[in-house]
């Protein structure tokens, strides 16, 4: 499962397709991106970090205990803002800064 692409938001720029380390994303006849090999996603989030319109979300599948929350990424200059939603509601927001190191 890994990522889910919202085709209503997708503008067909092809960035996610180029970046995916597994070559898993392709475009359909309307030029919208889809995950061609759903089983093969590694959840590396590279595609999410490239998408200009926040069309891609990270989800934890039920097989791994997922209960429906998802992460969406937005970029604030160099920082990445990770917003977790359940249904439409924001349940958590975490900002990571490339200039701030892991403390562990």
């Amino acid at each position: 499962m890994g990522v889910v692409i919202d085709q209503n938001k997708c503008i067909g720029c092809g960035s996610c397709m180029r970046i995916c380390p597994g070559n898993l994303i392709r475009t359909n006849a309307e030029g919208k991106a889809y995950l061609k090999k759903e089983r093969d996603c590694w959840s590396c989030t590279s595609c999410m970090k490239e998408c200009p319109v926040k069309a891609i979300a990270l989800v934890l599948s039920p097989e791994m205990g997922g209960r429906g929350a998802k992460f969406v990424i937005s970029k604030k200059e160099k920082k990445i803002c990770w917003t977790a939603y359940r249904d439409q509601e924001v349940i958590r927001e975490i900002i990571t800064d490339p200039e701030e190191s892991n403390k562990y």
């Binding site: 990270l58 791994m64 990770w82 977790a84 349940i91 975490i94 990571t96 701030e100 892991n102 562990y104």
Partner: peptide, 22 residues
């Protein structure tokens, strides 16, 4: 805990999602 969440976001984001989702 917050630092752990960030640390995993920079390496294996699914783990942070798991903590939040579960």
């Amino acid at each position: 805990e917050e630092d752990l969440y960030k640390a995993y976001l920079n390496m294996a984001p699914l783990q942070t999602l798991k903590w939040i989702d579960s």
